[in-house]
Design a protein around this nucleic acid. Structure first.
Length: 749
DNA sequence: GCAATTGGCGTTTTT
DNA sequence: CGCCAATTGC
């Protein structure tokens, strides 16, 4: 460790701010700090609260700590804000007016609740979309403003505010009736607990002797308030972050938290981790120049002793299709040239939709990849259907789950019946489930029988859920709800895949039961875990694959070679108006995050035309590209400035296609699975093509002598007569695959 | 009550 | 283009 890192580890007491530049070994410091606290016996694992950005990060850190100190760290309170608090809230549910088996509404559930309220209030859905109202309410909650406060103090006479106030109130009521919390509530209720219940507040203040927070720049106001309370007694609050990487303001994160930490804690110790161990000099310099444009930032001087490294590549394509092909060509070239494996690459983009073209290209070339994000496993329809049954079995008041499966599979409870029950629930002001039971007592006719047998089904599931473990319960419910039969009837590939996904949930429950040493393997606990599961928590099984993900999802990760794609104005918009300064700064930070993922190679790309809304539209390169470039060239402190950007030569797609030994593979033969599923590959090897229009003497397969090193065989050639990829036998040094200049090659007869 | 068909409309980023 | 909501037809 360097001096700064060591100091940040051993100064365990009092409020601490660790400003960690990209790639400066922040996770390492955090891990060692916890291990140090434990080894010095300053606290037991149970007294340490460590909040990470993903649950996977927590798991990995835990394993490393155990390795370091050689004892179990299972009791460490480590995980995301949401998962740690959800566990605490289940213990302390009663004073909040909740039952310990509360459901967690995801974004879709929450939006549906609002949609129903909007219908109920006869509000024009076109004018006030459920999503925007949901977002607005969510923002209020992030600032710990509830419906009562909002309606008392925040009405400004605008129609929108008035409507939001009404919806907000009903939304709170509906969630409580359903014994459900949304993501925001997990924070809000934790804050209420601490701020309004002195006894419980004391309890947790006493427990958490040391609190550590990773990625502090992305915390929101509610999280800030919670931390303030929790740390009030011992003051051992250590926050780690980088203001230059704050990119989550859209979900309420406020960079203010990290910027004003020293104001909040005047006696705070501040440590700066400025040495970057991740990237080459070129990449670090580019990142520094980019971020220096921001006005709102904490001074930091990130440097590296790593090699100067390769120039950053800029790929300009005509269309997004071509852009994707060029990226994949570059990727293959790097594989050949440096001997990189698939797992060394990441392809990053701004929006999930952008992955499609790139996927196509990768598939065409037979390169295996894995997508993170997009529709995650537990968001898929069929999975959510099963999970809805599970949720109902634990918490029958869960209205969203109930609405979801009340007539799936079809059992004769149609729209009319549901509408009647909805009205009944509204009239009597009772939960939907109660209204349903009431209807079963007073109704008549065909629908009645259907309702009665549905209630019996769910009550039976509840019994199973309480008396068996998660695995048995999930299997039983999947079979007896009719979901498996329904999906089994669908023989299409998509149908089969859906069926498999349901089996996969059963499998996940099995795994959960096997691995749950720390908690009861109950259905309720299984549900809690999957409610807060994200794609980033996924353990990667097929290791050697290219990673595709959004820039947001890439935070905290690193790759040997990174492609940042789709760098156009319309994806990285620029705006001159002053009010947008802050968002431009965030855009810039986003770009900063993207380029600092790269260790050795960085390739930036954009298309001059892009499909939007089905139309091909011209687009401009992002202003940020110029910002790095111009600043870099103006600087006098580096001597490689002129060559900062290397413009990639253009490949001719037709020729490349001919070259590809796999281009004849029938499409979809291996890859019919949905895009967010794993893909396996036929082995992608570079081999000689059938035909080519290249200069006769340099077609793939030609044996050549390299002027300096040895002899070898050409694997691929580009069409403008400059380069070839060749496998070269070095004299006495073995084989290597290299990109060679035509000019340096001699043909072997 | 339910499946099939048409018409309208929009895209950041996520715990 | 692709997804969803509303509408039609059985």
């Amino acid at each position: 460790m360097n001096t700064a890192q060591r100091e940040a580890v051993i100064n365990t007491e009092g409020p601490t701010l660790i400003l960690a530049g990209a790639g400066s070994g922040k996770t390492r410091v955090l891990t060692y700090r916890i291990a140090y606290i434990l080894s010095q016996r300053l606290a037991t694992p149970w007294q340490i609260l460590a909040l990470t950005f993903t649950n996977k990060a927590a798991r990995e850190m835990q394993a490393r700590i155990e390795n370091l100190i050689g004892i179990s760290a299972k009791k460490l309170q480590m995980g995301t804000f949401h998962s740690i608090f959800s566990r605490i809230l289940r213990i302390e549910a009663a004073p909040l007016g909740y039952n310990k088996d509360f459901s967690i509404y995801d974004e879709e559930d929450a939006t549906n609740v609002i949609k129903n309220i909007i219908k109920e209030l006869n509000i024009d859905e076109k004018k006030y979309s459920p999503k925007s109202i949901k977002h607005f309410i969510s923002n209020q909650k992030n600032y710990l403003i509830n419906a009562t406060t909002f309606n008392a103090h925040y009405l400004d006479g605008r129609e929108f505010t008035e409507i939001v106030g009404k919806v907000f109130r009903l939304y709170e009521i509906r969630c409580k009736e359903a014994n459900a919390m949304d993501f925001d509530d997990l924070l809000v209720n934790m804050a209420i607990l601490l701020e309004q219940n002195p006894v419980l507040c004391q309890k947790y203040q006493n427990q958490f002797k040391y609190i550590l927070v990773d990625e502090y720049q992305d915390t929101n106001h509610a999280q800030y308030r919670i931390l303030k309370r929790l740390a009030a007694q011992y003051q051992n609050l250590c926050v780690v972050g980088d203001d230059a990487q704050s990119i989550y303001s859209f979900r309420g994160a406020t960079i203010e938290n990290i910027l004003s930490f020293q104001k909040d804690y005047p006696n705070a110790k501040v440590f700066r981790l400025e040495q970057n161990y991740r990237s080459t000099k070129i990449i670090v310099a580019a990142a520094n120049y980019l971020i220096s444009h921001n006005k709102n930032r904490l001074e930091k001087n990130v440097f590296t002793q790593n090699d100067t490294g390769e120039l950053i590549k800029l790929v300009i394509a005509n269309s997004e299709r071509e852009e994707a092909d060029k990226i994949v060509d570059w990727l293959r070239e790097q594989k050949a040239r440096y001997g990189y494996k698939n797992e060394d690459f990441a392809i990053l983009y701004r929006t999930n939709a952008q992955s499609r073209v790139i996927e196509d290209s990768l598939r065409n070339k037979g390169i295996p990849y894995r997508i993170f994000g997009g529709i995650s496993f537990y968001q898929r329809k069929e999975v959510k259907d099963l999970v809805a049954y599970l949720r109902l079995s634990v918490n029958p008041y869960d209205e969203e789950a109930l609405r979801r499966v009340i007539n799936y599979p079809a059992r004769g409870i149609g729209d009319k019946t549901i509408e009647k029950i909805t009205l009944l629930a509204q009239e009597k002001q009772i939960p939907f489930w109660q209204a349903l039971k009431m209807a079963a007592a007073v109704g008549k006719g065909k629908a009645l029988v259907a309702i009665q047998s549905f209630i019996m089904l769910i009550e039976n599931f509840q019994k199973v859920g309480q008396t068996t473990d998660a695995y048995q319960a999930v299997e039983y419910i999947a079979k007896n709800s009719g979901i498996l039969q329904d999906l089994n009837a669908d023989a299409t590939p998509e149908g089969r895949s859906r069926w498999e996904n349901v089996l996969e949930v059963i499998n996940a429950a099995h795994e959960f039961v096997k691995n749950s040493q720390n908690q009861e393997p109950s259905l309720a606990n299984f549900l809690n875990e999957i409610a807060l599961y994200t794609d980033l928590d996924k353990e990667v099984k097929d290791k050697n694959v290219v990673t595709l993900m959004t820039i947001h999802a890439s935070k905290g990760l690193e790759f040997t070679s990174v492609f940042v794609t789709g760098l156009e104005e319309n994806l990285f918009p620029s705006s001159q108006s002053a009010k947008d300064i802050l968002s431009i700064e965030e855009e810039r930070r986003l770009f900063y995050v993207a380029i600092t993922r790269a260790q050795k190679n960085l390739c930036l790309s954009y298309a001059q035309n892009r499909y939007r809304f089905g139309k091909l539209e011209p687009s401009q390169p992002s202003r940020f590209l110029n910002e790095i470039k111009q600043e870099f060239i103006q600087s006098s402190s580096v001597d490689y400035k002129e060559n900062f950007f290397h413009r990639a030569p253009s490949f001719n797609q037709k020729e490349i296609k001919k070259l590809s030994p796999l281009s004849n593979t029938p499409k979809n033969s291996f890859f019919s699975a949905p895009s967010s599923k794993d893909t396996t590959e036929p082995s992608p090897t570079l081999s000689a093509p059938q035909a080519s229009n290249f200069p006769e003497q340099l077609t793939p397969g030609t044996r050549v002598i390299h002027a300096k090193f040895g002899y070898g065989v050409i694997l691929e050639v580009d069409n403008n007569g400059e380069n070839a990829i060749a496998q070269v036998d070095f004299y006495a040094k073995g084989k290597k695959t290299l990109l060679l200049k035509y000019a340096n090659l001699q043909i072997v007869q």
